[in-house]
Amino acid sequence: MDFTGKITGISIDIPTQKPVVALTADSDLPIQELKELGKCEKVDVIVKRHKDKRSLDANAYYWVLLTKLAKVHQWTNQEAHNRLLRRYGQLERLDGQLIAVPLPDTDKTETDILNKVEYHLMPTPKVTMMKGNIYRVYIMRRGSSTYDTVEMARLINGLIEDCRDSGISDSDIMTPFEKQKLYEQYGIGDESAVSENLRNMYS
């Protein structure tokens, strides 16, 4: 059972000297299921800071705009996506540690990695010798499907700037309604410019 809520009480159980934590859910929960869990000797509990998930609208917009950028540079969509994750994405960690992968330092390796869907890697300056061959160390990046709103905003902002640098016009980058949505959901763009664009549409 997963739910969002808040910690509404923290105390110490005197006999055991262990913490007692009270939680209040943001929405209704199945009481009978909670009662059944209450009969268990132990339950697994994970408490972490809540992060708003990115919207599906932003994901759809990202891929539409990414396709335009890929077309300009004659990349596949996946290659464009991996390039954007390298520039503006988030590092993957396992138990708090970065995930490093040594791979043959060849053009073929780089081409293959840029077109991978299953994982996302970024090359580093570090190289090493293994069995007489040169290997480059790559660092794993997180897939964008795991991003929260702040992380997705950074990725979309970077994509927009890359599109502008590639000669794609602002009118092709986003419509007034897309500007409005991105400003409301992610704070991307300028509020006055968004309002002016919408007024112009209906004037």
Rank of each mutant, 00 (worst) to 15 (best):
T106K: 04
T124E: 03
V137M: 09
I99R: 00
T106G: 10
Y138K: 02
D95L: 02
Y88M: 02
P104A: 06
I139D: 07
D95R: 13
E110P: 05
K116W: 09
L91Q: 12
P123V: 08
L85I: 08
G132Q: 04
Y138W: 10
M140A: 13
L91H: 08
K126Y: 09
L103F: 07
R86I: 01
V137C: 04
T109A: 01
R93L: 05
D107S: 11
D107H: 13
L91F: 10
L94G: 12
L94H: 10
I99P: 00
T128N: 05
V137G: 03
Q90M: 03
I113R: 05
E118P: 00
P125S: 11
G89P: 06
N133T: 06
I113G: 01
D112C: 00
L121R: 00
T124V: 12
V127Q: 14
K116I: 06
Y135Q: 02
T106H: 12
H120Q: 11
P125T: 09
L94C: 03
D107Q: 13
Y138F: 15
V117M: 02
P104H: 07
L94I: 10
I113Y: 02
L114C: 06
L94Q: 11
R86C: 04
D107V: 12
D105W: 05
E118N: 14
N133E: 15
T111W: 12
R87K: 15
I113K: 00
P123H: 07
L91A: 10
I99V: 14
Y119L: 09
K108Y: 14
K116L: 10
K116R: 14
M140Q: 15
Y119I: 03
P125C: 02
K126I: 08
T111N: 14
G132S: 11
M130F: 09
D107I: 09
Y119Q: 12
D95K: 07
L121P: 02
I139C: 01
L103H: 04
K116F: 14
V101W: 03
D105Y: 08
M140I: 08
M129P: 07
L85H: 11
M129A: 13
L91D: 15
L85T: 08
G89K: 00
R87D: 15
R87T: 14
I113S: 03
P125A: 11
I134C: 14
N133A: 13
V117R: 04
V117P: 00
Y135F: 09
Y88N: 04
L121V: 04
R93D: 05
M129F: 03
T111S: 15
